[in-house]
C-alpha cells in the first residue's frame, strides 16, 4: 500500500528555541493518528508545518497527490499547496471562529469550498450544503443562519461540514473538542468517528485530551519539548507506556 503522507525529519526553530525537531512518520490511507503532549510540546507547530500553514526549517512532507503521486508539499509552489488546502486537505481549528466566516450563512460557509473549486450552480451547491448540514446534525432550516447564531458545538460541527464537503483525503485537527462541554464533545467524537469510517479519511489529531485520542486515533505520537518521545498503537501507548514522560502523562489523568 502507498502511504498517504510521509514525513521526513521535520524541523522548526523559533530563533534558538526548538519548535519541533527531527519528526518523521508515515501515515497510510484510512489511518487516524493522534499527537499528544502538554502545551508548548511542539504538537501544534508540527501540525502547522504538516498542513502547509508554517514553513519548516528543514525536512520534507511527502503527500500522495492525485495527479503526480508522492510530492514534497514543503517545496511545491504556493498555488499548488493552497489548492491542496481546498481539495485533498482539510483543517479543523480548535476555535471555530478561525475556521468559519462568521458573517456568511451556514450554507455559504459549506458552499465556499465547492465554489472555490469551480462549482457554479446555485441549486447544486445549496443541495450539497443542506446534505452536509444534515450529516453533521444541523437542521435544514438553519442553512441561512449565520454561525454567530449557533452554539459552540454547532459551530464546530459546521466547521467540520465546511471542511469535508469537497471529500478531502487528509484532515488536520487542532484540539477539535477543546472548549466544548463534555456532552457536546461526546457527540462530536461520535460524529467524527462515523465520518472517518464512512469516508475512509486519514486524520492527524492534535490534542492534550487522552480520552479523545483513545476514541479517535489508531496510532499515537507523544511529544515533549519538540521531540517525539514515543509512538505506537494508541491503546498500547496508553496502557503500557514505555517512556518516562508518557508514564507521567498517563498517570496524571484524573479518573472519573
Amino acid at each position: 500500500m502507498t502511504p498517504l503522507l510521509k514525513v521526513e525529519n521535520i524541523n522548526k526553530f523559533y530563533g534558538g528555541r526548538i519548535g519541533c525537531a527531527d519528526v518523521s512518520f508515515t501515515l497510510y490511507p484510512g489511518e487516524v493518528m493522534g499527537i499528544v503532549g502538554e502545551s508548548g510540546s511542539g504538537k501544534s507547530t508540527l501540525l502547522n508545518c504538516l498542513a502547509g500553514q508554517l514553513e519548516p526549517d528543514g525536512g520534507r512532507v511527502m503527500f500522495d497527490t492525485r495527479a503526480e503521486g508522492m510530492k514534497d508539499t514543503v517545496s511545491m509552489s504556493e498555488p499548488e499547496r493552497r489548492m491542496l488546502g481546498r481539495t485533498d486537505w482539510a483543517f479543523v481549528h480548535q476555535n471555530p471562529r478561525d475556521g468559519l466566516r462568521m458573517g456568511v450563512s451556514a450554507g455559504g460557509n459549506v458552499g465556499e469550498r465547492l465554489m472555490a473549486v469551480g462549482a457554479r450552480h446555485y441549486g447544486d451547491i445549496r443541495g450539497k450544503a443542506v446534505d452536509w448540514l444534515d450529516r453533521v446534525e444541523i437542521a435544514e432550516d438553519r442553512v441561512d443562519d449565520r454561525p454567530s447564531a449557533f452554539s459552540g458545538g454547532m459551530q464546530q460541527r459546521l466547521q467540520i461540514a465546511r471542511n469535508l464537503v469537497t471529500g478531502p483525503r487528509l484532515v488536520f485537527m487542532d484540539e477539535p473538542t477543546g472548549g466544548l462541554d463534555v456532552s457536546v464533545q461526546a457527540r462530536l467524537l461520535d460524529l467524527l468517528r462515523g465520518l472517518v469510517r464512512q469516508m475512509g479519511l486519514s486524520a492527524i489529531i492534535v490534542t492534550h485530551d487522552l480520552a479523545v485520542v483513545r476514541l479517535l486515533a489508531d496510532r499515537l505520537m507523544v511529544m515533549k519539548s519538540g521531540h517525539v518521545v514515543e509512538t505506537g498503537l494508541t491503546d498500547q501507548v496508553l496502557d503500557d507506556p514505555q517512556h518516562a514522560y508518557t508514564q507521567l502523562l498517563v498517570s496524571s489523568v484524573l479518573q472519573v
Binding site: V104, G108, D144
Partner: peptide, 18 residues
C-alpha cells in the same frame, strides 16, 4: 495573484439565499 475567486461567488450565493 493565485486567481482564487471562489469567495466572490460566496457573496452572490448569500444574495440568492437571502
Amino acid at each position: 495573484s493565485l486567481e482564487e475567486y471562489g469567495l466572490m461567488h460566496v457573496k452572490l450565493y448569500e444574495d440568492i439565499a437571502r
